[in-house]
Design a protein around this nucleic acid. Structure first.
Lengths: 344, 344
DNA sequence: CTGTTAGCGCGTTCAG
DNA sequence: CTGAACGCGCTAACAG
């Protein structure tokens, strides 16, 4: 047992180094380095010899040392608001895939709204030696993106944007999204629409409200617009309050599908039928929206395209810091299911 | 514009180093290092001077260099099967939190079943210079955990376990979980129970079936046990096939809540009422299980405790590689909601 | 209390 | 085609 422990210790601390491989192969350390990196100047015979020795010793190059030498880490950070939210996990899954094939690992940074502008967090971000960052948590008043950008750290703003910042942006056309939702409800005959949106300081919320107002021909009255987190609970509690009020709306526009599902749950729980008594429309079109229990009508964003493109843009920026700044804006579309209908 | 670019370039490549701070503060480079790390031997006056200079220059220590020197990265890897699955995201959220406060960053490794025993993946794991790994994807036939362990890399097996491997394990008492589910169904009067489980090669599946069989007094017949991925789709399609068969069961035990919800959706879609026509019980008790549309009866695991303890055990193992191997087994409990009832 | 010196393990000139 | 020597930026051991 203690023998086993010793053996274990040995393998962990006496991990083979490139110089060990060199010794075993009878070449110099730099030859090992070159051979394993397929440097064309190394003859195929010595390359093979080195390969064998490396294999034998179970040699794996130390990444930290390489990072120090090459002055990059091949790790990027991805900031999300809330990992326990289906929209972000779909986004993360696709980003992960795209980054992986490009040879980048990724570190998750959960960045809840209430921790905004914490100085130590910003320091940690700078300190963490990321090659770049994908930020999905930008708010109109957040300063971290600008601070990072000024430091010369490659960033891309994904999903949400900040006007006036000269960085790459990948987002949906949220004004069009707001228009689409409103037009759908209006064409069904709805005149009294409530909106349960995300935090006021996000570009998505602002843009969608602008789009909706354009279609309605007037601004949604303040008592019909609610701001809150992107959670089931928010949709649930706001809907509850609306339906308990003396003049419930005939339709509810939710800022995302998770909120919309909260709305549906609250309505059903109170004995209302969706869509007969009240129509509900969401945003995103996450997988769950198509589940039979919900069959949610929603404005679809191309989450996958946004995820993939965000990763690509970041990698491009890392590899060419001075390239032209890009702004991708993806179209949205209406996915009609079973939660919207004409008002009674 | 080009001036701005130059400025940007300068800040990014001419990032201040500790020796720059030293120069500015009129001390040696090692004093800077010590002062900033609050070494008690440094006088408060020079510490303050160094602080000021560092602040002025916007100095942030280079983490890669520190990692090389300290021979550790303060990054751990967390392997999950599928990030777009509510159980794992809840787990990840709590692990993230716990690792964060301990000063560890974390890299997500999505490790789908079908990529099992890919040699390059193992190499990447070794190569990535993690201080340790939390593995939630262990299967009874997976070799990566043992390979990593032999290499001396600290690992903890979380959620699922492998017998005979001398590593830290944090899991639920899944035999008890199987017993609990079966006892509940049997006590309601169910005699014909089907099980839609996860992959056969996972300890959770095995243990829960064992527990269920103990209570039933016999083995579930093979035609009543289904194996598949932990997905809504799996629950949905298996349930569909069961209900289309000529002798549908009166109750279905699902391997987790996501599968159970798929089962509910399929049943409802086919015009069956849950629980009047068929009872459904899940495992995990994810947030979604309590949503009004589901109100799922389920065997609760203490996901948060498992997440937190996995993180702690890994950190302990990193800091003391030779400490005693631990095995945490958390109790489970029955959360009764509205998807189980006596058979008709 | 502080400065000097020596690596951490690689990739990469610069010689041969 | 290969080897010797150097340095990435930091922490730690050793002197004073």
């Amino acid at each position: 047992m203690s023998e086993q422990r010793d053996a274990l210790k040995e393998t962990s601390s006496n991990r083979a180094l490139s110089r060990d491989v060199a010794l075993a192969a009878g070449v110099s350390q730099s030859t090992v380095s070159r051979a394993l990196r397929d440097d064309p100047r190394i003859s195929s015979t010595t390359r093979e010899r080195v390969r064998q020795a490396a294999e034998q010793l179970g040699y794996v190059p130390n990444r930290v040392a390489r990072n120090l030498r090459e002055r990059r880490s091949r790790v990027v950070g991805v900031m999300v608001q809330d990992i326990d939210n289906a929209f972000y996990t779909q986004l993360l899954a696709d980003m992960h895939q795209e980054l992986l094939v490009a040879g980048y690992a990724f570190t998750l940074i959960v960045d809840p709204l209430h921790l905004r502008s914490d100085v130590t967090r910003l320091r940690n971000l700078l300190d963490a030696s990321f090659d770049g960052l994908i930020i999905t948590t930008a708010t109109l008043d957040s300063d971290a993106p600008e601070a990072l950008h000024r430091r010369g750290i490659p960033i891309v703003l994904s999903v949400r944007s900040i006007p006036g910042l000269e960085v790459d942006i990948v987002e949906s056309d949220n004004v069009a999204a707001g228009q689409l939702a409103a037009r759908h409800l209006v064409s069904l005959g709805h005149r009294d629409i409530a909106a349960i949106m995300g935090p006021e300081v996000t570009s998505t919320t602002q843009h969608r409200i602008v789009g909706a107002n354009q279609v309605l021909g007037h601004s949604l009255p303040p008592e019909r617009v609610f701001n809150g987190p992107y959670s089931h609970e928010s949709g649930h509690s706001h809907c509850r309050r609306l339906l308990q009020g003396d003049r419930p709306p005939t339709a509810i526009m939710a800022a995302n599908d998770v909120i919309a599902i909260g709305v549906i749950d609250a309505a059903r729980q109170m004995g209302y039928s969706v869509p007969d008594d009240i129509s509900v429309i969401g945003f995103d079109d996450i997988h769950m929206a198509s589940w039979h229990s919900f069959r949610l009508t929603t404005v679809r964003q191309d989450t996958k395209a946004i995820a993939v493109q965000s990763a690509r843009r970041l990698i491009e920026r890392i590899e060419d810091p001075d390239g032209p700044v890009t702004h991708d804006k993806y179209p949205v579309s209406l996915t009609m299911r079973a939660t919207t209908a004409a008002p009674k």
